[in-house]
Nucleic acid binder design. Structure first.
Lengths: 254, 254
DNA sequence: CAGTGGTCTAGACCACAGG
DNA sequence: CTGTGGTCTAGACCACTGG
């Protein structure tokens, strides 16, 4: 006989494993429950640990699992919906803002940032560090770049750095007229500093949201926010309604 | 000597490798150029192939590399910006639409979809399959779910399925008054069928954009679009301006 | 066909959390 | 300290692309 090929191609083991585990998660586990450890799971399914890990990795990427070194693997709650972008035509730091200023300092930004802002690459700009939390969990870390020209009324003596200074900078920013914002979302991996704030390992997948704040025909501020890709769903709407979904599942299609 | 620990913690090898490779890509390679194969790279850096692959995986995730089985690893062009969502207050299928209808059939949707649409879980809905390309490359695959009640004028005899039917359904949809849309972006992994259309392997990272089209106080249609996460940057703006960025770099911050 | 990336194994050691 | 997930190795075989 020989070449009688019943199935065209064999499904990769880790792919099949992922499916099986996914169904088991739906039926036999509840949110927060800890799974057996990787060595036992691998043995139970008769695969090498590396293969089992490949399946777990995918499930974590899809927000189904939460793995912590030294602790274990637990079933993750549904992703939290975080509103981003267009529903609020406001500057960062507006009263309705959900971000918490952490720090502020004058710094020479990366070249790409300087180019977008239209400043000289050697110029320092106000760099505000902010953190966003949801349900007590950190979901995003942000760097906000604000050229000195966007906050002319700022007194240098106010405070050299720190959260107080950050608030002062944001307060000054409100005085400008906001014409609009442009945002982009892309996949990235967490830098070491962001990873620390987000309670993840460096390299963890994140959704990078880059936002340009426009005023007077130029980019008055630039925000680069990194959201935890495993726990967040970024929401935006155009109908003026604010509406933050927070409810639930909508598991991906079969 | 002994425990003199110069650095607090050793950086993982693959992380360091990724940095080195990233810099090499910036300085010594140009877009489209093929890298040495994995076995040679691993040998050159003195690591196991699996470790080298971990670094390549991250770089591919960040859109820096493109790997194709049987071909090789090449330097990827900058991510293409694709406009999504709020700049066009239009139904899918409107004249300005960038999507290409591929097929259409009546099908019982996943339970979560039925729940969002407010239809019975056993009811069939029009399911339109669409494809989005940019520069000749496929960037996204979409499933559009449209309850029969949203397209009452549709004649059943028109065509049983196919692209023609898809266009007919979308044409009917334009008759409704669109009140707004709500979208969400999250990270996912490509299903087998999407992966095929996007020229990727199953499980490849994708940005899943879920959009509810609102009319008459209910969800008149639901779109689930999966974008290639490695090659796409999703853009949206709120200032009425359409503006599709397409230019360039803005490499992530240092 | 030869060469590429993709999958898989069986082991080892490390870093971290918690008792 | 024990147990967890994270890193790393050296090898094997498979699936695909292209000449």
């Amino acid at each position: 006989m020989g070449t009688t090929q019943l199935e065209t191609v064999p499904e990769p083991k880790y792919w099949h494993l992922k499916t099986v585990l996914s169904e088991a998660l739906d039926s036999d586990f509840s949110v927060g429950e800890v799974l057996p450890n990787e060595r036992e799971l691998a043995a139970r399914f008769g695969v090498a640990r590396a293969t089992l890990r490949q399946a777990l990795e995918q499930l974590e990427l899809e927000g189904r699992l939460l793995r912590r070194r030294g602790v274990g693997t637990t079933v993750a709650p549904p992703r939290v919906g975080v509103a981003v972008g267009t529903e609020q035509h406001t500057w960062p730091g507006a009263p309705s803002d959900v971000w918490e200023p952490v720090d502020c300092f004058l710094k020479v930004p990366p070249a790409a940032v300087a180019d977008t802002l239209g400043t000289d690459r050697a110029d320092e700009v106000h760099t505000v560090r902010r953190l966003r939390t949801s349900d007590g969990q950190p979901v995003a870390a942000e760097l906000l770049y604000i050229p000195a020209s966007s906050v002319p009324g700022l007194t240098a003596v106010d405070a050299p750095s720190g959260a107080a200074r950050a608030r002062a900078v944001l307060r000054e920013l409100q005085r400008l007229e906001l014409q609009g914002r442009q945002s982009a979302v892309e996949l990235g991996s967490a830098r070491a500093d962001d990873a620390r704030e987000l309670d993840r390992l460096p390299g963890a997948p994140v959704l990078v949201v880059t936002t340009r704040f426009l005023s007077g025909g130029r980019t008055a501020a630039l925000a680069v926010a990194t959201y935890r890709a495993d726990t967040c769903r970024l929401t935006f709407s155009d109908s003026g309604a604010v509406e933050i979904h927070h409810e639930a599942a909508e598991r991906q299609v079969s």
